[in-house]
């Protein structure tokens, strides 16, 4: 496959909805268990880091520490939900369960299947954000003014990390090797994207690196501004960055998966 072929727009039909629906049905079977992490995790983090560690931390730009990290917790959850859904879980469906093979024997194409998987990954991110917003609001750490905008933005951010996860799924030689991107990409992002301390605490070149190459930086920025009830023009830059990179990676991930599966 030539390089340009990796970026050719794939033809995806509305039938990809059936794949989304399949994953949703599986999710609904364990709905209680699936809703627990986004409900419990922010509580645990806010108590331990926000109120525990936060006691020893000065306010950041006039914002108490718990309020500073609360939106980052949503952003991290957006990243984890869709990345893991479209890496480990998609890999299991593709390789071990042969679910994709079964589906492409029907009128659906492989492009439809991957598109459905990506949409579902993004939906998981959105579900997590939707559950977390009221929990964080209970702690009084979110300004409700623009907070509901976080929900659609979580879907967009979810698509971004779904596409990233799917690209790795397409090239990984086995399921264990997905640990590499987790360790070398996802975990550093969790720590160095302005999540638990502001980017400005880092050396300037690293700040630029984070803005250019760490997608979570932009997700954190947007969700933080929305949850503070602030709409500044800098949001436009972050949203534009996310839109462009997401579009490119969605196309790339579908083409890479096609390359892997069509033999």
């Amino acid at each position: 496959m030539k390089l340009v072929d990796h970026f050719r727009i794939p033809s995806v039909s509305s039938r990809s909805y059936k794949v989304w629906q399949r994953n949703k049905d599986v999710f609904m079977k364990d709905i209680k268990l699936n809703f627990l992490p986004p409900f419990l995790e922010p509580i645990l983090y806010l108590i331990a880091l926000g109120f525990g560690l936060g006691k020893f931390v000065e306010s950041i730009d006039g914002v108490p520490y718990a309020k500073f990290i609360a939106p980052a917790l949503i952003a991290v959850s957006v990243m984890y939900a869709s990345f893991f859904e479209c890496s480990y879980s998609s890999y299991v469906r593709m390789y071990y369960q042969k679910t994709f093979d079964a589906i492409i024997a029907t009128p659906l194409t492989i492009e439809d299947v991957i598109a459905g998987e990506l949409m579902w990954g993004a939906t998981r991110s959105m579900i997590n954000a939707t559950v977390m917003i009221p929990v964080i609001a209970l702690f009084g750490l979110i300004d409700m003014k623009y907070s509901l905008l976080i929900i659609p933005f979580a879907f967009l951010g979810g698509l971004l990390f779904a596409a990233i996860g799917m690209c790795f799924t397409a090239v990984t030689p086995n399921i264990m090797s997905i640990n590499y991107p987790v360790l070398l990409f996802i975990t550093p992002m969790f720590l160095f994207s302005g999540t638990f301390f502001p980017l400005s605490a880092l050396p300037v070149p690293i700040q630029y690196f984070a803005i250019a190459f760490l997608p979570l930086t932009h997700i954190v920025n947007v969700i933080r501004l929305l949850s503070f009830g602030v709409l500044s023009t800098s949001i436009l830059f972050d949203v534009a960055w996310v839109l462009v990179v997401t579009a490119i990676l969605l196309v790339l991930s579908i083409n890479l998966m096609k390359k892997r599966l069509v033999v």
Binding site: R15, K18, Q21, R22, D25, V26, K29, Q97, K98, T99, D101, A102, I103, A105, T106, P107, L108
Partner: peptide, 24 residues
């Protein structure tokens, strides 16, 4: 297919019903 690729996340009944959706 040569290899059984039933959907392990579903029951027998659901396997057939979910599959029917792919055919509209």
């Amino acid at each position: 297919p040569q290899e059984n690729n039933l959907d392990g996340d579903f029951t027998v009944y659901e396997n057939l019903l979910v599959y029917s959706r792919y055919f509209d």
